[in-house]
Nucleic acid binder design. Structure first.
Lengths: 238, 238
DNA sequence: ATTGACTTTGAACGTTTGTTCTGTTATTAT
DNA sequence: ATAATAACAGAACAAACGTTCAAAGTCAAT
């Protein structure tokens, strides 16, 4: 006589709950001994005994002679909503944390840097860098950020090396103490310097404290292209 | 140059697909031998070899000495391409793209750097940095990475400034061309230098090309603490 | 031609694990 | 009370399984 969903004891319920919890936490089923330990049963045979009952009543399924092969057929006492909700939150958080910043080109000392003009829609970005938002100023307008790869060793006095990745935002002016990318007409050169406006001249201070500043008297010989926001150096593992 | 899932051979892909398919059909993971049988590999060690690689690249996860404990961390190449499945993949990818690296402390020239000892479980990390995985070597074992904040200007000859964030992995030895953090007994100092082993001495080359190298004749006066993997400079918006 | 990094094999070892068996203790019906 | 049935223990076993190691093969760079 096939007994239907008859007598589910307290033990059965405990086992089912443990199965689901263990599955959720580990991604696979517990062994018989692990089940026994958890429900306070010393002998493996007794656990097997209960499992067989659960199997007969079609609460679970398992494959003979295969470790950890228990499948839960129908969840008992569902409290799954919590888990789903939590993982969903973590996912949306992570997705928002990740910025995709286009790499517009290279910074070469002797050439003006490529800057996204307001009219010129987009340079086709060669590629993009993924950057965590938390590395940036929280109130940064991330949509206008762009990245440049430094080519050559012309920026060493800005403590920036060949291959470094500079992330910046477009700007035509700067405040004191900000690091800017400037094009100097008289020198035909692009550099990265800290910007300071003094009485009647502009001081461009290298990041390397051992280097001396450059002074510019006529601001018209100087074009600010953008402000540096972040520098990333990927050390070549060789 | 942010590229995604690099360094995955055909075998790896085949294994991942089998893992997902098997999981889907049986509700639990295949054993090592079952995997080997399916991809046409006779020895269990070779399967283990591949699994370890997949583990390092964080495609899967498994628990030691536990049968069928493989967890698929990120699905690969879903052959059943539905819109839902694809967006789901993109989300999990994004989640996996984001690494949380603990900041263990500061690098000060006159002090040894804090390194996660194998026995000393964890310094309580002061905080953590979020870093996109694509910024790192794809086969880097990201779980052992840690970050240090540079304090003072003692590292300027390594092109690293006060406030910079150095991400490194523990190491006691290094290969030529790698940037390492070393403690020099005779100078009582921690520095970051490029490591080169020459005939009968060690050359420590500053990253700044204008600086001269340091030569160490006796390797015992030199302790390698770790290899530098990434340097991040958050330019103070002031 | 040699090195070195990566791939592959085969076998062996020690656990983990499911299964089975014998036997004991409770519970219940008669 | 007694017999029958259900609940439990403990041990023992063989298969399944993860791990490790020594050794050999492959392939590209030097």
């Amino acid at each position: 006589m096939a007994r239907k969903s008859a007598g589910i004891s307290d033990r059965h319920r405990k086992i089912m709950e443990f199965l689901m919890k263990f599955q959720d936490e580990n991604g696979y089923s517990p062994s018989i001994r692990e089940i026994g330990e958890h429900i306070g049963v010393a002998s493996t045979s007794l656990v097997d005994y209960y499992l067989r009952q659960l199997e007969e009543r079609e609460y679970i399924e398992r494959d003979q002679h295969i470790s950890r092969s228990i499948r839960v057929l129908r969840p008992i006492n569902a409290s799954i909503g919590e888990t789903v909700k939590r993982t969903f939150n973590r996912m949306t958080e992570a997705v928002n944390e990740l910025l995709d910043i286009p790499v517009l080109g290279r910074v070469v000392a002797g050439e003006p840097i490529p800057v996204p003009g307001s009219d010129v829609r987009y340079f086709d970005p060669e590629s993009s860098v993924a950057v965590a938002r938390s590395l940036l100023n929280p109130r940064e307008n991330v949509s206008e950020l762009f990245a440049l790869e430094v080519q050559g060793e012309s920026m060493i006095d800005a403590m920036i090396n060949d291959g470094d990745l500079v992330i910046m935002k477009p700007a035509k002016e700067a405040s004191n103490g900000e690091m800017v990318a400037v094009w100097m007409d008289d020198k035909d050169e692009t550099t990265l310097k800290y910007f300071y406006k003094e009485n009647n001249r502009i001081r461009l201070q290298p990041a390397n404290p051992t280097m001396k500043p450059i002074f510019v008297d006529d601001p018209r010989h100087l074009r600010i292209m953008g402000k540096v926001v972040l520098v990333i150096r990927q050390v070549k593992g060789r």
